[in-house]
Structure formats: structure tokens, C-alpha cells
């Protein structure tokens, strides 16, 4: 299973993401000889607890996320960040969660864009938009290296590739940069061998980060 880093775009203070940045990032992938190879898509749903009595102390999390990955559409991943739990299930689990009526889907984000092949690397650059909307909420990039499946062993080559990428992108003088968050996979009970569960944890982490950044930039927004 190839290693993957999932990065999100951090706009400079006082700026926001826009489609111009997305287009520049895509052009950058092509300028370093990335060969466009079709589209990719990830869907992330926020589940919010349905509570009978508001305000009382609860023994359960306020929310968790459910993730569907294009490379394995028959699977579904549930992540509770607070308790560091990730579970891999079949897509049918969505129906079970719906029937239990204990958590409800509050909103759904789609991550989608183009895929580029660069030797042993694959880059996927895309927008983050709420379902049934075109309003851009973020920019995300998947950086995949196919020959290695150990998170630890791939760290150096991934870091070097990321530096090259940052250098290429810096020529475009964009208002922001890609950030690589490294979740503590051990806390989730995941080993060094990369799996789709690692991908799900990364998606949950960058989404939480994007939301908290958006809330810092726009403190009065509900």
C-alpha cells in the first residue's frame, strides 16, 4: 500500500483561498512534468450527536466524521478524533448509523480534483467544497509515493519531494502555503505499515485544522 501525505492549503493571514490559487497549484503540478491522469474524489461527512436533553453532561462525543475514499468505494471509515479511534467498515455502515438515529449527518464536504503522475509519485490536487455547492472552502493535496509502505522509511523521500514541490510553487508568489500535519498514528492503534485507515485519519485531521483556521479568520461566523 503506497504512502500518502495529505496536505492542506494555509492562506496567509488576512487572505482566503480562491479558485485562482487552485488553478495556479494545478498548473504547477503540470509544470514539473506531472502527467494528468483523470480525477479523484473523497467525501467526508460530519455526524453530530442527537441529544435528548441539551446542556447535560454527556458520555459521548459531540461529533465524528465518516469518510469515503475513491480508491475503495466499498469501504467507509469512521474517525473520532477526541478519542483517537478509527474504524474501517463496509459502506453499509452508513445505513446502520442512519437507522440508529443517535448521530445525524450535519454537513458533507467533497474533496475533488485532478490526479498527476510524476514517476513513482502521484499528486492529487483538488478543491474542498460542501456538497451541492460550489463555494470553495479549501484546497487539498494528496502526495503519494508508490514503492514504500512504511511511514517511517518513506519520511525522508517524502520530505525531499515536498521541498521540491514547495520550491516550484514558491515561484508563483501565492498568498499561502501547503501544510503537512502528522497525526500520531500510534495513538489510533495504527502501525508503521500504511493503510487506508491512515488516510482517513489524515483527512479527519486536516479537516479539523481547516475548520479551526476558518473560525479564527472569521470569528463571528456561525
Amino acid at each position: 500500500m503506497p504512502i500518502k501525505w495529505i496536505l492542506h492549503w494555509q492562506p496567509n493571514a488576512g487572505t482566503t483561498v480562491n479558485t485562482q490559487i487552485l488553478s495556479e497549484v494545478s498548473q504547477c503540478a503540470e509544470s514539473i512534468n506531472g502527467v494528468k491522469e483523470g480525477r479523484w474524489k473523497t467525501i467526508l461527512s460530519f455526524y453530530r450527536a442527537m441529544v435528548r436533553e441539551q446542556g447535560s453532561a454527556n458520555e459521548f462525543p459531540r461529533d465524528f466524521v465518516g469518510i469515503s475514499l475513491a480508491e475503495q468505494p466499498s469501504k467507509y471509515f469512521l474517525v473520532i478524533r477526541g478519542q483517537r479511534v478509527v474504524v474501517e467498515a463496509e459502506s453499509n455502515i452508513q445505513m446502520i448509523m442512519e437507522k440508529l438515529q443517535s448521530y445525524k449527518t450535519r454537513f458533507v464536504l467533497t474533496f475533488e480534483g485532478n490526479q498527476y503522475q510524476l514517476g513513482d509519485f502521484q499528486l492529487r490536487v483538488g478543491k474542498v467544497v460542501p456538497t451541492h455547492s460550489e463555494s470553495l472552502r479549501g484546497i487539498v493535496m494528496e502526495m503519494e509515493y508508490q514503492p514504500i509502505s512504511s511511514w517511517e522509511k518513506s519520511h525522508q523521500i517524502m520530505g525531499e519531494f515536498f521541498d521540491l514541490w514547495q520550491e516550484a510553487l514558491s515561484k508563483r508568489s501565492l498568498q499561502g502555503h501547503f501544510v503537512h500535519l502528522e497525526p500520531n498514528f500510534t495513538e489510533y492503534g495504527l502501525s508503521d505499515q500504511y493503510t487506508l485507515q491512515h488516510t482517513a485519519v489524515q483527512y479527519a485531521s486536516i479537516t479539523a485544522q481547516m475548520i479551526s483556521t476558518a473560525q479564527t479568520v472569521q470569528p463571528n461566523r456561525n
Binding site: F60, I80, V87, E90, I96
Partner: peptide, 20 residues
């Protein structure tokens, strides 16, 4: 009756305990 099933990874019990 309605019935839905899904295979899950081995930490499913931990998930449901965490979910309340």
C-alpha cells in the same frame, strides 16, 4: 424485518463504547 450488516475492523467495540 429490516436488517443491515457491515463488516468492521476489530476495534468496533471501542468505537461503539466511544460513541456512547
Amino acid at each position: 424485518r429490516t436488517m443491515a450488516e457491515s463488516k468492521v475492523s476489530k476495534n468496533a467495540l471501542r468505537l461503539f463504547y466511544a460513541l456512547g
